[in-house]
Structure formats: C-alpha cells, structure tokens
C-alpha cells in the first residue's frame, strides 16, 4: 500500500473504533428501557443542538475571514452581535435546561411508582450480591445477574459492604454509586425482553475491570415463574458424577464461602451458588456458564481474574474438576 493510502486507512479505522463501541449490549445509545429511554432523546437533542451551533460558528468564522466585504459588514453590526452572542445562547441553553429538568423529573415520579418490586444489589470486591424480595416478602439470593420483568418498575437498592462501586447498566439507566453505609435507589424498567450488560463504573481495586453482570429482561409471567423457582432449594445430584462433585464441594471447604440452599454449605463470602447453573456467566460476567468453565474457574481463577478473593484449587485432578463442574452445572 502506498504511504498516503496507508495513513488514510489508519486514520479511518481509528476514527471508526469509538463507533464500534456504540452498538451492543452495553451501549447507552441503544436504550432498552426506563431512564435510558428518557435520557436518549435528551442526548440526541443536546448532541443535535451542539452540532448545529458548531456548524454555524464554523461558517461564520469562514465568512468573517474570507467572505465578501458586504457579508463581513453585516457580521460586525451591533444587532448581529447582541442577537447571535447573547440572545441566541440564552434561548438555546434555557430550552435545554428546562427540557433536562423535565426528563429528570420523570425519573422522580417513576421512583415513587415503584414500590412493591424490590431488588437489593450489593457491590462486593469483585462481584455483585443480588437479593430479590418476593411479593410475599421472602428474600431470594442470587449473584452476578439481574432479572427484570418487562414493563414493571423495579426499585433497585444499591449498597456496598466494602469500598465504593458504581452500578451502571447503560441500556437501562444512568450510573449510580454504591457507597458503604448508604442506600442509593435506582428505578429500572425494561421496555422489551432481552439481555444487556452492566459494569462497575467506579475503580474499586484489583479486579475492577472484570466486575460486570448481565441483566436479563423477561416477560412478567415468565419472571414470576422464574422467581418462584429461584426461591426453591438446590437440585439434588442424580448421577454418580454429580454425587462425587457434591462430595468434593464439601471436602474442599467450598461451603466456607458459598451457600447452596438446602445443603450444609452456608458461607457468605462468595456468590450464592444455589442456582448458579442457570446464570449466563460466572466470575461476574468473566467466563461463560458451562461445566468446562466451572472447572477452569475453580483451578485457575487467579489467572482468569487476577486478585479475586477465591483461592485457586490446583490440587484437584482433572477428573475431580470435571465432577465439580458437572455438579455446579446441575444447579439450575
């Protein structure tokens, strides 16, 4: 490739790079519900106005420098300066401000409307504890994934046990910090079924970059059925392989940190594994969720997610890891 062509190609492709980030399940530009849908027109309006102002100023500068004498004379008139330099900005900015206030106000009314559907998300280093409250007032614990009923307003209480994290699902809402000793409340409402992704947006140490989660929006009826299943104790192992996995789980002290409802494992230092097999990912959206990934995670988690707080179990033989993987995969 000739040199100028190559430079051009490079410039173009690096200019496209940021655009690639605009699509996908973690993009604020593809809103899927609630606050994000409200914010979306606000963003495009402000962006549009900004572009228009930019274009206008560029043209005026060009005219002022190179334009015909008559035009330049017009530009230097007193009325033109007052109009373009003071009146126009006041009008445009006031419009944007009022519009912004209106949009934000909408958030406040939505919050008061969401009362009965409550989910508490606690930021941990470096994963998310997610506790649903069922309509009967029971608490159901899960982790690293948030399920939402489409069309219902859900009140998400944001807490932290350790350091400041920030909860951000760009397709659904703006970001909100999780601050130790405080409860911040965010209202989410998914407009359509689908999967989007959230990410911790406040540096919280070691594995911060790998602290993400999926948000699964599902039709309300399906959601209710799912929540009822989620509230049940874990499935019991059926095959010999799964039995062996369950025994290894106890023998290796996994229960020191993990809970599997219905068993003796009642640890609270790591994610609840009662229904881990039904989630989309493990390690806070770091690995896919299947038997092979479980095995990899157990033995190599310190390489997969450096500095995370689970010890690596390289003492386990490949067949033991397979058995554990089969057991965890069963926990749907």
């Amino acid at each position: 490739m000739a040199r100028p062509a190559r430079v051009l190609a490079c410039t173009c492709s690096s200019a496209m790079l940021p655009l690639a980030g605009c699509a996908g399940i973690q993009s604020a530009l593809v809103p899927k519900g609630g606050e994000a849908l409200d914010i979306d027109p606000l963003f495009w309006t402000s962006a549009g106005v900004a572009m228009a102002v930019m274009a206008m100023v560029t043209i005026l500068v060009a005219v002022a420098l190179r334009g015909p004498v008559r035009w330049r004379q017009v530009l230097s008139r007193e009325w033109f300066l007052t109009g373009g330099g003071i009146v126009l900005p006041i009008v445009v900015l006031t419009f944007l401000l009022v519009y912004g206030f209106l949009v934000m106000q909408a958030g406040a009314t939505r919050m008061s409307a969401a009362g009965e559907h409550v989910v508490t998300v606690t930021g941990k280093r470096w994963w998310w504890r997610v506790v649903y409250r069922t309509p009967e007032g029971r608490e159901v614990e899960s982790a690293n994934e948030l399920r939402l009923p489409v069309g219902r307003k859900v009140m998400v209480r944001l807490l932290s046990d350790d350091v400041i994290h920030s909860f951000w699902v760009p397709q659904l809402a703006g970001k909100l910090d999780m601050i130790p000793g405080r409860i911040n409340v965010l209202t989410l409402e998914a407009a359509e079924p689908g999967i989007s992704r959230g990410q911790c947006a406040e540096y919280c140490g070691g594995a911060h970059a790998l602290m993400a989660f999926h948000v699964v929006a599902m039709p309300a009826a399906e959601y209710d059925a799912w929540l009822a299943r989620e509230a049940m104790p874990a499935r019991v192992p059926a095959s010999a392989e799964e039995e062996r996995g369950a025994a290894l789980f106890t023998a290796n002290g996994c229960g020191a940190c993990h809970t599997i409802a219905g068993t003796r494992a009642q640890g609270r230092l790591g994610p609840d594994l009662t229904h881990v097999g039904s989630r989309r990912s493990i390690g806070a959206a770091t690995l896919p969720n299947d038997a092979a990934a479980f095995a990899r995670w157990i033995a190599e988690n310190d390489h997969i997610k450096p500095e995370n707080l689970m010890p690596p179990y390289r003492n386990l033989a490949p067949d033991e890891l397979r058995a554990l993987g089969a057991f965890l995969d069963l926990l749907e």
């Binding site: 290796n252 229960g255 640890g267 707080l309």
Partner: peptide, 23 residues
C-alpha cells in the same frame, strides 16, 4: 465462624475430620 467483614472464612469448614484427607 470466620470474620465475614474481612472475607475470612471459618477455619473449621476446611480443617475438620470430614473434609479432604489433604486438609
């Protein structure tokens, strides 16, 4: 019981007669 605040698990969950013969 460990010390949950410090992410410290209970020693007994690994160091007990019923856990792995390697612990």
């Amino acid at each position: 019981e460990g010390v949950p605040r410090q992410e410290l698990p209970a020693c007994r969950s690994c160091h007990a007669p019923e856990t792995s013969a390697q612990f």
